[in-house]
Amino acid sequence: MEFVVGAALAIFSAVVLAYPFLTARSGVESHAPVLDSPVPPPELASVYQAIRDLTWERQAGDLPEDLYQQQLDAYRRQAALLLRDAAVYSAVVGESDEALEQEVATELAARGGQTPQSSQDTVA
């Protein structure tokens, strides 16, 4: 009895593990994470959070108006730059075509000695 339950558990596990391979072969859409349309860079959220913080602190009377304005402008500009870069980047890369992305990366590397952040450069 106990061995039957054990075997059932093992078989069930094996099926669950094999499922992604089966669906991948039969062409059903895979569950692997796909690169979706230009995601706003994660830094953006923290910049927004910083702006909210700043506002909160000004409301609490912690910040002189001039310092607040100065920092707010800096943050807004930073956020705008992030948005612009994301937009430009996605425009150049297009539909996340890997070949194109690679091309851009090499070009960039040639230009600035720096590759853009992507999951591909981790493998090396």
Partner: peptide, 24 residues
Amino acid sequence: FLARVDQELTVAAPSDVPRTGSSA
């Protein structure tokens, strides 16, 4: 993009809208 930042901040936190002027 600056305009969009302002817009998103307004949407996200209506009560704490940072006052943003054209001087920004």
